[in-house]
Design a protein around this nucleic acid. Structure first.
Lengths: 110, 110
DNA sequence: TAGATCTACAACCGAATGGTTGTAGATGAA
DNA sequence: TTCATCTACAACCATTCGGTTGTAGATCTA
């Protein structure tokens, strides 16, 4: 899923498919590559759950799935929160530690 | 940068390097792969700005850079927000528009 | 100094990626 | 029906990825 987000073209497809009004062909027209290439990108996004396709006649409309996007965002959220907590805990430890020798040994980075 | 996040081992390295206390060798001991492989992962994370290395004697301590993580999170944030705004705008349009034929004609946007 | 440890990096390999072209099936329109 | 359009997918190619082993430089320790 992060892999699906790792390509600039795919991220752009995600942005442009927010409304869910564009067919694969119409999307493909926006990029300097073949229809088949864009089709592959859409498939990758679809398998990552970032996008859904809906048939309308002979065309297939692409729309981004917000749930998956927010799931990825929350994953990074957790990572950031964990980091913040860890730093807070270390700062607290350093604050209540007044021995310079030990403080020096533990100083590491901030 | 999303590419750096796209590998499970690298995401785990990010988590375990939050404290900035682990050397590359110590990190490598946690994974079922060679030291060189882990070293490569750390390099990828470093070039993506997700991690920094700091020499201490002969070892190199790895610590995650929170700024980059939060930047990635905010990127997804923007995507999600854009989606929500788009949906809101569409709902409002549909709500104030009661003529089904016109609604159909206006849907296409382009 | 000698030896152990930590790191850096090159060379290689198989598999996956991102792109291409070509072919074929559905669907809509004349 | 016939033709154009949209989609799906296979086959292929060059490059990148994730892993390996091997070699060599730095730094600590006995």
């Amino acid at each position: 899923m992060f892999h699906a987000l790792a390509d600039a073209t795919r991220r752009d497809i995600l942005r442009r498919s927010i409304g869910g009004e564009l067919s694969v062909t119409r999307l493909a027209a926006s990029y300097p590559m073949s229809f088949a290439a864009v089709q592959k990108h859409v498939t990758v996004l679809e398998r990552a759950g970032l996008v859904t396709k809906e048939r309308r006649g002979r065309e297939q409309l692409v729309s981004t799935a917000p749930d998956a996007v927010s799931r990825a965002r929350r994953a990074l959220d957790r990572l950031e929160t964990a980091w913040r907590e860890r730093v807070d805990r270390m700062s607290r430890l350093l604050a209540q530690d007044t021995d310079p020798a030990r403080a020096n040994r533990t100083r590491g980075r901030n």
